[in-house]
Design a protein around this nucleic acid. Structure first.
Lengths: 199, 199
DNA sequence: GCCGATGTGGCAGAAACTGACAGGTGTGAG
DNA sequence: CTCACACCTGTCAGTTTCTGCCACATCGGC
């Protein structure tokens, strides 16, 4: 196959396996209505041995990482294509909605995300994916912030943007998801970016 | 003993035991330079059986909760005594410094907190204590925010204040702690509260 | 077709937890 | 003061999560 690609063939295969196991776990979690399924069951449903499961996911809860990483990458990609002239708030909201298939969240996803929000160990994995997003957003905001100053002036706004988004999203998920998510996000992001000197 | 107190005698005793075990764990972690000590060792050092350890801390990492809960309560208490006329930024910074013994962080604490920041499972426990702080700060900000509006207008500023504080603090800890923490906090809080319509 | 590299499975075992039972301690009623 | 009761603790056995090790299969390059 192609030679110049960054990820090796083997690496990509491992990545696909991890994604498949993650999807299997997600389906089991949603079907059960909780996240208490044992490793043995998830591994068997995914067609691998428990030993292989733990080779790819040292800690059981790591199994959901590929899912969150995928959406974080989708947001990052959407943000990369935004022209510099766009309003930052609109750009960030658009990047978020672009990351959802069809611009909206399915009932299946809603159930899954509810489980993730209410289970601390899994919520942590979501936050870790958010942390990677922080760097991307920091890169985006760089073009719109006054240069120089303390390093925190660069990282803090990105950190706050990500956490404001997370807070709004968790509110939306746990409160029944019958509000206008985009409007809530716009509102929250405006608040954050008003405090930072984003132009 | 006194009768009208809220916590039962037994409950307070259990609380003290938990605090003692937590302190023991902290000392072991700092002495080792990592958090890999086994439950058996921590329990033995604290003079209890592993079974009792798990009775008070269902998950091993929960052992640090009493420590973070204590400082969160200290901040909450400091914030309760602040007059309504005080500048919110100064009040919050003062509450934070009041929570540290002597207004500054000891070398021992710095080493411990570094371990907590760099180990996701323990960092999560710290965040959980922060989450309780969110409610207290939301109560404080209530007096200074325009009434009414969406529930998020009440919870989001508090959430952002807590997370901005956490971001600054983690930067300060991991970057060597040789900067002026109060000044960094002031700067970050001003940014957050400027975005929210805090008066 | 062969060979080295790498991923996988099975097995044994360590470590983190849990349920059940027995023993000790203190508290309050009589 | 004594007894009964509630509660906490320790012991023990068992489950679940996770790891080291080795043998085997598979894949990619020669």
């Amino acid at each position: 196959m192609a030679k110049g690609e960054r990820p090796t063939l083997t690496e990509r295969r491992a990545e696909e396996l991890r994604a498949a196991i993650a999807r299997t776990a997600m389906e089991i979690f949603v079907a059960d209505g909780d996240t208490s399924a044992k490793v043995e069951r998830i591994a068997e449903a995914a067609g691998v041995s428990p030993r292989t499961f733990h080779r790819h996911f040292p800690v059981k809860e790591d199994v959901v990482r590929p899912l969150f990483r995928a959406t974080a990458e989708a947001v990052a990609n959407a943000l990369r294509d935004v022209p510099d002239t766009a309003d930052p708030v609109e750009a960030l909201v658009a990047a978020w909605t672009a990351a959802m298939p069809g611009g909206r969240i399915s009932e299946f996803d809603r159930r899954f995300l509810t489980l993730m929000v209410t289970t601390p160990e899994y919520r942590l994995r979501w936050q870790e994916a958010d942390a990677e997003l922080c760097e991307v957003i920091a890169g985006y905001l760089d073009r719109r912030l006054p240069a120089g100053g303390h390093p925190l002036h660069r990282t803090l706004p990105a950190y706050l943007v990500v956490h404001a988004t997370r807070h709004v999203f968790e509110h939306w998920i746990t409160s029944g998801s019958d509000e206008d998510l985009d409007a809530l996000l716009r509102d929250a992001l405006r608040m954050v970016l008003a405090g930072a000197a984003v132009r």
